[in-house]
Design a binder for these strands. Structure first.
Length: 200
DNA sequence: CTCTTGATCTTCT
DNA sequence: GAAGATCAAGAGC
């Protein structure tokens, strides 16, 4: 008898076009939950994101363009990668029309593709911890400053829409000290692959 | 389990 | 000079 997978890998949905990102950053953030993100074929299902917009002070774009955040001020559908705490890389998807300087920070994935590569890069075996944070998932997927400004609908990056409905939880964003009250964190409540749980 | 600390890049004061 | 969209390791409970 053929073995039966306990948690079958979801079928990949339609490839997301750049126009997917050309609308309110909070709508994009919500719709990214359950989508699959791959870099050179390695990645998984997005389970946690946060939205940022230049009109609120937690955003990197709040004080206007700098060399680091310049890509945020351009058209939607491109990657914004920045250095976090001098150590890690974090990846965002630029959203809304040029000038909105809005982006979705990818905070956690459920690993589904290229587990061996992720384990090698992370020097870690436990699947739970491979991509359970914004700095962890970039390391697992091999994302660096070299990926800054890359389009999201061309290799090496691939994004696929979710194929089934998911209930999306919201909450306050993690690790910020300004605009802390905005409920712009989105994710799968109860997922074992989050950077932090969503409180009930 | 929680709390503390070091790692050291980019921006802001 | 200080803070920050973080993480891992170690101490203490």
């Amino acid at each position: 008898m053929a073995p039966v997978s306990k948690t079958p890998t979801p079928r990949l949905g339609k490839a997301l076009k750049r126009s997917f990102f050309d609308r309110d950053v909070r709508e994009v953030a919500r719709d990214l939950i359950g989508a699959t993100m791959l870099v050179d074929g390695v990645g998984g299902v997005i389970v946690e994101v946060e939205a940022y917009h230049h009109t609120e002070p937690a955003a990197h774009s709040y004080n206007g363009p700098t060399p680091r955040n310049q890509i945020m001020f351009g058209p939607p559908g491109f990657a914004y990668v920045y250095r976090s705490y001098g150590i890690h890389w974090c990846v965002n998807f630029v959203c809304e029309a040029a000038g909105s300087a809005a982006a979705v920070l990818i905070r956690a994935l459920e690993p589904t593709h290229g587990l061996a590569a992720m384990r090698r890069r992370r020097h870690l075996q436990e699947v739970h911890a491979l991509c359970s944070g914004p700095g962890k998932l970039t390391e697992a997927l091999g994302i660096t400053i070299a990926h800054n400004t890359l389009p999201l609908d061309r290799p090496p990056i691939a994004l696929h829409a979710r194929t089934e409905d998911v209930e999306v939880a919201t909450g306050i964003r993690i690790g910020i000290t300004k605009a802390v009250e905005l409920p712009w964190r989105y994710g799968v409540r109860g997922s074992k692959f989050l950077s932090k749980p969503f409180p009930r």
